[in-house]
Design a binder for these strands. Structure first.
Length: 435
DNA sequence: TCTGGGGTCCTAGGACCC
DNA sequence: TCTGGGGTCCTAGGACCC
């Protein structure tokens, strides 16, 4: 059942059995092209954090057979040969474009679930003509933010994902595929052409196991016996199968559910061996997880720290991991960092070239219902300090206000050798955009 | 010269206790 | 004294997603 905002509709509840999945094509690459019209027609790739792997490719880059998630250094010669425009990821820019895009999309559905930075589900009214609605969405996004997109429409989220996938790959649909426009025979032909692993929720390992049961494509998965599935697989997969049959099991989540774990981790720009540098990075991650925690109104009762050497190196591997239940659940950056630093000192072994560090929080609880311990109540001035910290960082950008410990050394910062300017987010980097 | 992402949830299996 | 079943809790690693 879908719950609507007050006053939106006469009925209090309507059964949503029609979903649209809208997503930006090659989103990061499209964002970069937005401010560089000279790159029209040129292959573009965007690299992950630390310039590690390829995370987005323009259509031209895909045509060069550059695979997704390939380490950049392996394809660097190919990129040089074909004059590929290479960008480090610029999440400040993509996040800003994403917010504008989601803002425009909200009015095209009864409800909206922002699923990731470049895609959202919309609940559609039964009466709306799907293809036409989808084309208006595409035009609006292109005109409003300059991002090309595709739309998949179907009676379940899993099928909407699949329809979107097909709309992107089959030009005949002109970017919009409404599953219900297809005859049963056409639906089956398309499902047959999709590998089981292309279905949302079926990854590489599950696809391998399904293969052993003789289930290789989406049609075979749709028609698989519930008995076999229950015997060999999980309830999660049986839900996916129901969704493929057009039975909606996954609701639209218009209010982001609170996370159960929060993690911040990052590879270093160069290998790090000394404790002070690790300590600075852990302070940074502690501040990030605390900020995320406060943003969802939770407190954490468990904190963990991980450090590790590069798994791709032969010799001297080490993975350190430590966690600790907090004496009192907290959302305070300084408290959390204090325990994170204690954990780090416990797991640190000198002499290893570390490649990555991270901090995570678990056993999260709602802040409002936590009984404060009589003898160690969170001081009101600290709460006030955190609120101010968040406000400043929200309004003036991440990193405006930091822990002193984060500033001790910068040696762990990631590589970003191909970063575009903050066209929309940094005044100093403004430039004229096209109309 | 050397290079290999980040985040979330789930679950099997171990530790511990009765 | 020793064994064994069963339940709970915890966590590292697996699987999935983008």
């Amino acid at each position: 059942m879908a719950h609507l905002g007050c006053g939106q509709r006469q009925r209090e509840e309507i059964p949503v059995s029609r979903f649209a999945l809208v997503d930006g094509n090659n989103f990061y690459a499209s964002c970069e092209r937005l401010f560089r019209p000279d790159l029209e027609g040129r292959p573009i790739i965007v690299l992950s954090n630390n310039d590690g792997c390829v995370v987005a490719r323009s259509a031209e880059a895909k045509a060069l057979d550059i695979p997704g998630f390939v380490p950049y250094f392996q394809i660097r010669p190919l990129c040089r040969r074909h004059h590929v425009a290479v960008f480090s990821s610029n999440y400040a820019l993509y996040g800003d474009i994403s917010r504008r895009m989601m803002g425009l999309l909200a009015r095209f559905g009864l409800q909206q679930e922002v699923y990731s930075i470049d895609e959202c589900f919309l609940a559609l009214d039964e009466g709306w003509p799907g293809r036409q609605h989808g084309q208006i969405i595409r035009q609006t996004l292109l005109q409003g933010v300059g991002i090309p997109s595709c739309v998949g429409i179907a009676p379940s989220k899993t099928l909407a994902k699949l329809a979107n996938h097909l709309a992107k790959r089959m030009p005949r649909w002109e970017g919009v595929l409404d599953w219900q426009d297809l005859t049963e025979r056409e639906q089956e032909r398309l499902l047959e052409r999709c590998g089981a692993g292309q279905v949302w929720g079926v990854g590489r390992r599950l696809a391998e196991r399904l293969d052993k049961q003789g289930i290789r494509n989406a049609l075979q998965l749709r028609d698989a016996s519930p008995d076999t599935l229950r015997r060999h697989f999980s309830v999660v997969l049986s839900r996916t199968v129901a969704e493929l049959n057009g039975v909606s099991c996954l609701e639209l989540e218009d209010v982001a559910a609170g996370k159960q774990q929060i993690l911040s981790s990052r590879s270093f720009g160069q290998l790090v061996s000394d404790l002070p540098t690790l300590s600075a990075s852990v302070a940074h991650h502690a501040a990030r997880v605390a900020e995320k925690l406060r943003a969802q109104g939770s407190v954490a009762a468990l904190i963990g720290v991980t450090i590790r050497t590069s798994p791709f190196r032969e010799a001297g591997q080490y993975r350190g991991h430590g966690c600790l239940p907090l004496p009192q659940a907290s959302d305070d950056t300084l408290t959390l960092n204090h325990f994170a630093q204690t954990l780090l000192r416990g797991i640190y072994r000198p002499g290893f070239p570390y490649q990555k560090a991270g901090v995570y929080l678990a056993d999260l609880r709602e802040k409002a219902v936590i009984q404060q311990d009589l003898f160690c109540q969170a001081k009101p001035e600290r709460q006030q300090l955190m609120a101010t910290l968040d406000k400043l960082n929200r309004e003036h950008g991440h990193g405006t206000l930091k822990l002193g410990a984060e500033l001790l050394t910068d040696d762990w910062r990631m590589r970003r050798e191909h970063c575009s300017p903050g066209y929309t987010t940094a005044f100093g980097q403004l430039r004229e955009t096209r109309d």
